[in-house]
Amino acid sequence: MRVEGLSKVYRSNWSRKTTRGLDDLNLVVRRGEVFGYLGPNGAGKTTTLKILAGLLKPTHGRAWLLGTPIERIESRRSLGFLPEQPYFYDYLTGPEYLEFVARLSGLSGREGTRAARQWFGRVGLGERPRLVLRKYSKGMLQRLGLAAALVHAPQLVILDEPMSGLDPFGRRDVRDLILEQRERGVTVMFSSHILPDVELLCDRVAIVLNGRLERLATVGELVNGQAASIEVRVADCPVLELPAGWSGCFSLARRTGESVITLTDESRLQPLLALLVQQRVEVRAVTPQRGTLEELFMAAASDAAYRAPNARRTA
């Protein structure tokens, strides 16, 4: 998937006021990778995904899906798209809906029926095939939306907030589905607010803020660039004497039954361990702490807000 100089300006029909939803976005998602697309509400994530799915027209710029320009209808032949908070025809049953969309994506009648049955069971809805969609819970609808995005075995899957509305079991199932797609060689791009999931699943991550691409790197590159620290857990001791000169490079937190020393200077680790042994304090664990994606995301968002305090955001 390639995006070159993509911009979107929304115009109000009445006041003719303009709002920039996306600003000169350049992006390449490689075949077979799982790509996370992050940003706060109104950053331009949904705008980007909708342009790629053919629901919005870009104001400027171009994009290609699997080598085909998005203006051409063929670009969506191998695309699976899950919109944010998907809505369906509530008079249909789950298998009927899946068969309908599978056939719209090019499957024959027999293939569509088979794929619909298979995916209906695969997303954990197989027990109630005759239930009409108006009686589905939010989580069930989200699962059905995922099945609809995958039912025709697409080569590229774009998911807008796929974990939204799901309980922990549902989130685990979605993670499994995304990993399964990666194993099949399918390219997956998804937006999410649930950063631990993104960290767990994605090969690369883009952070978009105020319609502009802020960061683009592998998860490892992003989080390893963050300041590191080392956490030393020790058995609770009433008195712990550390050299007076260390005051700026450690913090001490007492929990029930243990204490946690957090070192911000790695060079102090060996002297600290020696000191603890000398004072006969039981060391339970030494854990290097790296910055999380969440911390990085919050820092990037703060930077952008500082640089453009009056930037207008759109949904």
Binding site: F81, Y87, G106
Partner: peptide, 14 residues
């Protein structure tokens, strides 16, 4: 209004 159109027009349907 109900956004059911998203699921159709994001497929190869002119």
């Amino acid at each position: 209004e109900r956004r059911t159109i998203f699921n159709l027009l994001s497929r190869p349907v002119p």
